[in-house]
Amino acid sequence: MIEIDRVSKSYGGRHVVDEVSLAIPEGMFCVLLGPSGSGKSTLLRMINRLVPLDGGTIRVGGEDVRRVPPEVLRRRIGYAIQSVGLFPHWRVGDNIATVPRLLRWPRRRVSERVTELLELLRLDPADYRGKYPHQLSGGEQQRVGVARALAADPDVLLMDEPFAAVDPVTRAALQAELLRIQQATGKTIVFVTHDIEEALRLAGGIAILEHGRLAQWGTPLAILEQPASAFVGEFVGGAASGLRVMALRTVADRLRPNETAAGEPLLDEASLRDALAAMIARHADRLPVIDRAGRPLGAITLADLVR
């Protein structure tokens, strides 16, 4: 869906993005992860041509982005940023309607779409439509920012650290909303962050960037369990990455089939971290496992968690 092929960018002789290749399948939640200055934001902005390419090609939906006029390209791709950038002189409804109006949608359709999006982001349309951005909290502004990015129903959504400036509780809520929306709509999302926890919570695929180079590209588990370099290992948490693995792996991965155990059973889709918590709470080192339908599947032991 998005093919990034040996893409480079340098400013004054310094390589900010260096021969990066990445194929993001349709419908994937892809996170570009890296420390500041790793080029992740530049790479994102090259997809909608806010940053011109020095070398290589980027294709979105099979089409070379350089063959499409930039305004046309950008109206097809949703874009949300950390500081939101809502137009302060426009009401929430007008802000969300920006791209549909640029695309000259009929008035009624624009209005219906705004209502739909406000509902999708759990903002009461009657209440929020007529407000000005400065009347909203940071989290509400970010919701409007996401709604605005989704307005023309783009297949691809680019998000540049959209939740970095909101408090942790609001951030967790926004992450959950975004996952829900992504699962419901099947959009391809490219999401930039420097926060490993955020990346693990959201990503289907993580691309780790170091000094403009692609250090590793894989699923969250692959990156945690087989870091491709010392840098990646360090970045995903060093020794603590084991705890992160436990949050991603499920009981089903470590199950002893057909064995039995006493006590209150665990669900097979629970994470290993939940299993450990349950063992600690119940003072047990061995628990039975069942599936959602309640059928017994086997057992899991404390030693299995770290196997």
Partner: peptide
């Protein structure tokens, strides 16, 4: 604000639209 300009361009406003509307 730079963020407003960045968001406007990122959504596909032309430079004339950016000037006139924002």
């Amino acid at each position: 604000p730079p963020a407003v300009r960045n968001a406007a361009l990122g959504m596909g406003l032309s430079s004339w639209q950016l000037l006139a509307a924002v």
